[in-house]
């Protein structure tokens, strides 16, 4: 009964789902927050305020925004890899806490002990923030296992990239998820490059929506640059999982504008390719154009939102710059829980 994976269909799907003005405004605000936050993070990295690895989400904003809009906040759990800032912002985690974690300060979400790749929130049901490529597929399947075991009606959403999609444990997880019909949606964020290796050079089959076919897991390929398409597909997938039919795969065709991490100059792709995406497919510009074309929202209205977002990001950056480093005594806390 599995829906046949619709590799080409989605790309040419004639019926683009329509957003209300309210939905467009929400998406605009969320995506802009990610964009501005990440730009600021990139700048602060350049100033030496953020150390180590820093993977920016710029270009991929529509994916996590559309999925989260279709999920139940505070109930459905989400988990991802190390490109995780956008997920936390959309899920409602405090931008100050996220930025202060990036700078390794005591007010960071993990008290400065996690860093860019390791932040979590039980309250928001966000489980990281995982640095080992592919691990979150198994962990996310476990979140779904817990949902089914406890019968709490939640769905687990596990994001991973086209690179992680070639990891063995992903298929071990697919197998168990379908075997036990666990309520999990696997979101494969296909941004076309696993670090510097293009999907063509790494994957024997590049249609990742088909990767669940041998486990009878339905999959769809979705335009991940159009938040409406993401939202629409996510609604289908989440409903499928929540109704007890088991896992569902959404391959999001997306693009990251920046390098893999801050130290990656992205020499493996052409400037034209990046420019084309930015000019023709940008997820935020699509929504902006739609809002303005609707006639009710003016440039001034959008500028007002921009100003508000910028204030949030500035406040986060100021906090993350001035908050003290964790106390030396924090070195020895949170290793184990004293029984």
């Amino acid at each position: 009964m599995a829906r046949k994976a619709t590799a080409t269909q989605a790309k040419t799907q004639p019926n683009v789902p329509q957003f209300s003005e309210q939905q467009d405004l929400e998406a605009f605000r969320e995506m802009l927050l990610i964009r501005r936050f990440e730009e600021k993070a990139g700048q602060m990295y350049g100033m030496g305020l953020i150390g180590g690895f820093c993977h920016l989400y710029i270009g991929q904003e529509a994916v996590v925004t559309g999925i989260t809009m279709a999920s139940e906040k505070g109930k459905d759990s989400q988990i991802t890899g190390y490109r995780d800032h956008g997920h936390m912002l959309v899920m409602g985690l405090d931008p100050k806490g996220v930025m202060a974690e990036l700078t390794g300060r005591q007010g960071g979400l993990s008290k400065g002990k996690g860093g860019s790749m390791h932040m979590f929130s039980n309250e928001h049901r966000f489980y990281g923030g995982n640095g080992i490529v592919g691990a979150q597929a198994s962990l996310g399947t476990g979140l779904a296992f817990a949902a089914k075991y406890s019968g709490d009606g939640s769905v687990a959403i596990a994001y991973f990239g086209d690179g992680a999609a070639n990891q063995g444990q992903v298929y071990e997880s697919f197998n168990m998820a379908k075997l036990w019909n666990l309520p999990v949606v696997y979101v494969i964020e296909n941004n076309k490059y696993a670090m510097g290796t293009s999907i063509e050079r790494a994957a024997a089959t590049t249609d990742f929506s088909m990767r669940g076919a041998s486990f009878n897991i339905p999959g769809e390929q979705v335009d991940g640059m159009d938040v409406r398409m993401v939202y629409d597909a996510a609604q289908r997938a989440i409903e499928h999982a929540r109704s007890g039919k088991g896992p569902y795969i959404l391959e999001m065709l997306t693009y990251r504008y920046r390098g893999h991490s801050m130290s990656d100059p992205a020499k493996y792709r052409s400037k034209d390719e990046v420019t084309k995406y930015r000019q023709e497919r940008d997820p935020i510009e699509q929504v902006r154009a739609r809002l303005l074309a609707g006639g009710k929202i003016s440039e001034e209205d959008l500028k007002q939102i921009e100003t508000e977002i910028r204030a949030i990001v500035t406040e986060a950056a100021d906090f993350a710059t001035n908050d003290p480093e964790p106390a030396a005594s924090e070195l020895w806390t949170d290793i184990t829980i004293e029984a």
Binding site: Y127, T141, G142, F145, A146, Y149
Partner: peptide, 20 residues
């Protein structure tokens, strides 16, 4: 479980994160 130590160990850790 199937014979998939990597997968079911990770699955169990995820279930533990969620409170089991």
């Amino acid at each position: 479980t199937p014979i998939t130590e990597h997968g079911f160990a990770g699955l169990a850790v995820g279930a533990a994160f969620a409170g089991l």
